[in-house]
Design a protein around this nucleic acid. Structure first.
Lengths: 340, 340
DNA sequence: CTGTTAGCGCGTTCAA
DNA sequence: TTGAACGCGCTAACAG
């Protein structure tokens, strides 16, 4: 087994209390004793048992991160952000995946009544409709921060991005860049994600007294989309700005621009929402709207630690809407690929 | 605070020992008592403190996963695999990122002498040249499993994929599919990853008494690669099979095939190593070689748990070389995008 | 300055 | 069938 305080105590003919204090560099221990303790500790590779001290101090110095999955880059980057803050604060990170299952989410959260963690960072599953399981741990005094996928009705800290605002900003960006004929490429208008983005576009145009909104409806079928966009790019008054509401629309755009000899971004400025960032491999000169996953992770973690460390900190007051990142790329600075 | 055993004991006028046994469904407790205990436990939302019991039983029921980063999909998927096995086994997963720093890796590993975890799954940082930090925890009796990025000289379990074999299989695959003129597109031949892959290709050809090997050297510059591959695809005896040693070569291949009216896979079969899987968005009919990250995670975790649970299990005997997945896709079954 | 004592919450003897 | 007592490794209060 690993070496413990009693081992040091026996070896040095001191009491465990003395060792404990010495290791904490307490002022009530003589310099000489501390020296001896430190030396032996280093020599024997002593590492305090965190669970024993945690039991005593009623703190685990660990947080839980509950995610649906870590398939795309968003949650991956978020983990990076969370871990980096946690590390700085001296906390450890437990990770749990719900696999989009509400049942699993429930059982995971219930576990947290046990004192295993000091706080929870959660992005709820796609199946989650009710929030009593979250309310329960909060009621038990556990700090909780929602992150990306939130429960609207739970009064605790939330960190999200704003689809409306992102799209609004993208529109302003294009207008400022000189576009006067911007088309929004929508997906199924039923999706709330799409309608928010579309509204942002409309508002952006309106607030700038610009052109009327011009929405082209795309579909789930790629061949069909190709046809639709071709029509758009060959019509008499061709658009000089495009907002792609989902990443996969960038492929037909790119291909058609090659085919029709339209250069991006000189003749056509394209902004696309993107999760995979795969679009950049194709079109390095694309302007992208990405969720700043790393920053969101850091922000969420920071708030959580405030909630953990300051007992009177009111998490329910915290609602952080982080703007998406509008990243304009020149062909030289991209990690993507450029072709003649 | 959360409810503990003593609370239940007081409420039911029983001793803590009785409660403890009852909760473990011990046969030395009457059915009736158990019933009452279970009921109250459920009612009060009792959850045992894992650290207290862990302290007693000298086991934490948690493992550590030490990774360089979770940027690309490989480690993300690996985490999924690891977590799923851990969950099944009733274990918890602590995650640590080294950010490719050896110093950080060292300090993380040292922490594990403390009993915080029962086992370690690690993919070493890019800076890691020595292995004494790993040897140390192993010497202290900690089960360790290497995973993808290993230390050759440490005698413990390892789970990896084999570049040579993958490439060998890809070559055989193309030969079997009727190719007689397969070209290998290399990257910088200095990279060990590339030389292993190239050797696999050569051996694959040799073992099948097929054509002589035909390697085309690509570069780091995309425009240049485009030119090189164009030359290749317009030369008199055009290849009917291509092995791309890195994913980014697929973009020029795809573009040129469109341009030159070469259909994949009818006229040209393309196999590519891939990490991002972004290539599939472009070319759904591509055949890919991917590291089966999810399975590797599961395999590594499974081995680790054997090492943890069977004290006489010899981890140093375990070396699992998982074959890369050669995935041939038809245009219909892909998650990618197809265009006319 | 150092040591004694008493838990943190739980599980495991051993007695009753 | 139940309970009292001890200890896991550590910290905190109080003595000395």
């Amino acid at each position: 087994m690993s070496v413990k305080i009693t081992d040091l105590a026996r070896e040095l003919n001191l009491s465990v209390a003395t060792i404990s204090k010495a290791l904490k560099d307490s002022h009530e221990i003589s310099l000489e004793t501390k020296q001896r303790v430190f030396e032996l500790a280093k020599k024997l590779n002593y590492t305090p048992n965190p669970y024993a001290s945690g039991l005593r101090k009623k703190s685990s110095k660990t947080i839980a991160v509950v995610l649906p999955e870590v398939a795309d880059s968003f949650f991956s980057l978020a983990i990076n952000g969370i871990e980096s803050i946690a590390h700085d604060k001296g906390y450890h990170v437990l990770i749990y995946l719900t696999h989009e299952s509400f049942k699993r989410e429930e059982s995971i959260l219930k576990e947290f009544q046990s004192g295993r963690v000091d706080g929870i960072l959660i992005s709820v599953s796609g199946e989650t409709r009710t929030s009593s399981h979250v309310q329960e741990v909060i009621a038990a005094g556990m700090p909780v921060v929602f992150f990306d996928r939130i429960c609207e009705d739970v009064e605790t800290a939330k960190v999200i991005t704003d689809d409306f605002e992102s799209s609004y900003n993208a529109t302003c960006h294009l207008l400022k860049a000189g576009c006067s004929n911007i088309v929004y490429l929508s997906t199924s208008p039923a999706l709330s994600i799409n309608s928010n983005r579309m509204e942002g576009y409309r508002q952006g145009l309106a607030d700038n007294g610009a052109q009327k909104s011009d929405v082209t409806l795309c579909t789930g079928d790629n061949t069909e989309n190709y046809r639709i966009i071709r029509e758009l790019l060959t019509r008499e008054k061709r658009p000089d700005g495009l907002i792609a509401s989902v990443e996969k629309l960038t492929t037909p755009i790119y291909l058609l621009c090659r085919e029709l000899n339209i250069s991006i971004p000189e003749e056509l400025k394209v902004v696309s929402f993107t999760n995979l960032q795969a679009a950049l491999i194709l079109t390095p000169t694309l302007t992208t709207i990405t969720q700043p996953a790393f920053e969101m992770g850091k922000a969420a973690a920071s708030i959580l630690f405030k909630g953990i460390e300051k007992k009177d900190f009111d998490l329910s007051k915290e609602k952080v809407v982080i703007p998406s990142v509008l990243a304009e790329r020149s062909s030289t600075q991209t990690a993507g690929v450029q072709y003649p």
